[in-house]
């Protein structure tokens, strides 16, 4: 079983500032979502509302069709893992893992297995852990929660590249083994892009875009080939990014490539690839850009 999420006309104010304004969002059950947004866009606020860490100023949040606020059967099966985890710094790693048993489906054996795999010292106190190890512990607690809705908010911060890779693979394995809803909030967009099925972009407290990954990928294209030919073909398009190595150039454009352009590209020896999610995200959330 996995949880669907619905937000209806949700507004969250911090004093006079709207952290989120009139947000309407539907997340289907059993998918992996990427939650993208610039700093201060409202990602963490959105996740906090879904996990009932906060109550919205206006509007309603439903999880599995039920209001989430003060709903024990629901919130006990939602795991929001925040950067660095929510731990008692005086406790040991082992004791912290055991505290996870407060969740109905928490798998202590799996958590201990992961702690061993990621070389977490069980007897060490949380305050003695490095930032990376602390992040790993947070990720482990999230995975072992076996929740119906698991949300990771920048949980990878401090992890080195191999550890992040191992975490994503473990996340995917757990997802394949037990389908549930996952939300990954991250700034490392290209790193997680391959794992995502759907992407939500939050910008200035509003949902800017909510699409399947394929839809985003078809919103632009990367043209790679001889520099002069690429420049000519890209001239009439909005350029998101460009790279050049010797005579070979790669330009990412923010437009779907029509059949005519494809033919001209093929004739000029230019390869057409999908647009990078990160390039598209930067383009879509450009502060001077108007509309979505």
């Amino acid at each position: 079983m996995s949880f669907a999420v619905t937000l209806r006309d949700v507004t969250l104010k911090y004093r006079d500032t709207d952290a989120l304004a009139d947000v309407n969002l539907d997340l289907e059950a059993g998918k992996i979502y990427g939650l993208l947004g610039r700093n201060g866009a409202g990602k963490t606020s959105l996740l906090s509302l879904i996990a009932a860490f906060r109550k919205p100023t206006a509007g309603e949040v439903f999880v599995d069709g039920e209001p989430v606020w003060e709903n024990a059967p629901i919130v006990s099966r939602i795991a929001l893992i925040r950067e660095g985890g929510d731990f008692d710094d005086t406790e040991t790693v082992k004791s912290t893992i055991e505290t996870g048993q407060i969740r109905p489906a928490f798998d202590t054996e799996y958590a201990l297995h992961l702690a061993d795999r990621f070389e977490l010292p069980l007897k060490k106190r949380i305050r003695e852990l490095s930032r990376g190890k602390r992040s790993i512990l947070a990720a482990i607690c999230g995975l072992a929660a076996r929740a119906e809705l698991t949300m990771f908010d920048e949980v990878h911060l401090g992890m080195d590249a191999p550890t992040r890779d191992a975490f994503y693979k473990e996340l995917l394995a757990e997802y394949m083994d037990r389908p549930h809803t996952v939300v990954l909030s991250t700034h490392l967009i290209d790193e997680v892009a391959n794992y995502l099925e759907s992407v939500v972009i939050v910008d200035r407290g509003r949902i800017l875009r909510h699409e399947e990954v394929e839809v985003f990928q078809n919103m632009g294209a990367t043209l790679t080939g001889p520099a002069a030919a690429v420049d000519e073909l890209a001239a009439s398009h909005d350029v998101l990014a460009e790279q050049q190595l010797g005579g070979t150039k790669s330009i990412t454009v923010a437009a779907a490539v029509d059949p005519g352009t494809r033919e001209r590209a093929a004739a000029a020896g230019i390869e057409i690839g999908p647009v990078g999610l990160q390039d598209l995200f930067i383009h879509l959330t450009e502060p001077n850009r108007k509309g979505a």
Binding site: A52, F53, E70, N71, A72, V75, S76, R77, I78, A79, L80, R82, D86, F87, D88, T99, G100, I102, R103, A145, A147
Partner: peptide, 10 residues
Amino acid sequence: LAIAAGLTRK
């Protein structure tokens, strides 16, 4: 810690 671990306030 309790709220983060999925307890309600009640």
